[in-house]
Computed example of a mutant assay.
Amino acid sequence: MSLLLVDDDQDIRSLLVDLLSLEGFQVDEAENGKVALEKLAENTYRLILLDVMMPVMDGITALKEIRQRYNTPVLMLTARGDDLDRIQGLELGADDYLAKPFNDRELIARIKAILRRTDAKATLGSQHIINFEGLVLNTATKQANYQGHSLDLTTTEFGCLELIIARVNQAVSKDDLSMKVLGKTLSPFDRSIDMHMSNLRKKLPPRENGDVWFKTLRGRGYAMLSNEYAGGGVIL
C-alpha cells in the first residue's frame, strides 16, 4: 500500500517513513510540491501526506495542482494554530488535516480512517448504486454524477453526500458527519465539516426544479431534501 510523503524536513520524513513502514505502508518521499507532482505523474498512491510550509512549491499550491489532475486523498500537515492553512486546504479539497506536532497513533488513525472510506470494492453491481432525483452515486468506486455529468467529488465530499442522501429529509448533525465520514470526534471550533459541505454545495449543479439540494439547519446540521420537501416542509 503506497503513500506519498511530502515534507521538506529530512528528519521528519525519516521518522515518518520508519513509523509508516512499521504499519505496513510503502512510502515514497518528496521534499516539496514540485517533486511531489513529478512523482504523481509516474506513480499511483493510495494517499498523500502533504506539509504546508515548504520551499520551491508549498503545500497549498501543490494541492491546487493535485486537485486539478488527481482524486488521490490528501491529509494536510499544518502548523498548530494556523487556521488559515487548514481552511484553505479544506476549501481546495484536502480530505483532512493534522496539526504539528502530532501523536504518532493519531496520524496512523487518521490515515486508516481516510483509507477505509476510500477503499473501492472490486465487485460492482446494482447494490452499489444510489439514485436520488438525478444524482447517481457509485459507492464502490466513490464516484458521483448528475444526469451523466461527473461531479468530481473528493472521497470526503462523496462520503458526506452519501450519508445525507441515506437520511433524506432528516437532520444529520455535524458530529455524526465527522464520526462517520472523517472517523474522528468533532472538536470545538473545528470547521472541517462546514468546509467539506460548502465545497459539496458548490459542486452540485443546479437542481431541475430550482430548489436547493440540502439545507443548513442552524444548531442541527444539514438535511438533504427530496422534491416534496425542497420547497419547505418539516425536517425531522
Rank of each mutant, 00 (worst) to 15 (best):
M1C: 10
G89Y: 02
K180Y: 05
L19R: 14
Q68E: 15
N71D: 15
S198P: 03
D96Q: 11
E38H: 14
W213A: 08
Y146E: 06
R67C: 05
I48R: 07
S192C: 08
G219P: 11
E157H: 01
S226K: 10
I165S: 12
R207Q: 05
L3R: 03
Q26T: 15
L4F: 13
D95S: 14
G134I: 04
L20K: 04
Y229G: 07
D11Y: 13
M54Y: 03
V6C: 09
D152I: 00
N103Q: 14
Q127A: 12
M179Y: 08
R191L: 13
S21E: 09
P55V: 00
T154R: 02
N199W: 01
T185H: 05
T216Q: 10
L200Q: 07
T139S: 11
M76C: 04
N209T: 13
D11M: 10
E157Q: 04
Q88V: 04
E91G: 08
E29T: 14
I111N: 10
S198R: 15
K215L: 13
G231I: 07
A99M: 12
D85C: 03
T154S: 06
G93D: 07
E29V: 14
S173T: 08
T185C: 01
K202G: 04
M197V: 00
R201S: 09
A120F: 12
L50E: 09
N71H: 13
L50Y: 06
T185S: 02
G232H: 14
D9S: 03
E106W: 12
R191I: 06
D96K: 10
A171K: 10
I235W: 09
D8V: 08
A79T: 06
A140D: 11
L5C: 06
E106S: 13
R80Q: 13
A144E: 01
F189W: 09
L153M: 00
I164Q: 03
Y70N: 12
R116F: 04
L200D: 08
A230T: 07
Q170R: 14
I12L: 13
A79Y: 01
G221R: 06
K34V: 04
S226F: 12
N32D: 12
N43G: 06
L98I: 15
L137K: 03
N43T: 00
L22I: 10
T155M: 09
R67E: 07
P55I: 00
K202M: 08
R13T: 04
E133S: 15
H149T: 13
E31V: 07
F25I: 03
E157K: 00
D7M: 02
G221V: 11
N199D: 05
A62W: 01
T61A: 08
I165L: 07
S21H: 08
Y97N: 04
T155G: 15
A171E: 15
S226T: 12
A99E: 15
L151I: 01
G231D: 09
I165H: 11
G125R: 09
E157P: 01
G59F: 07
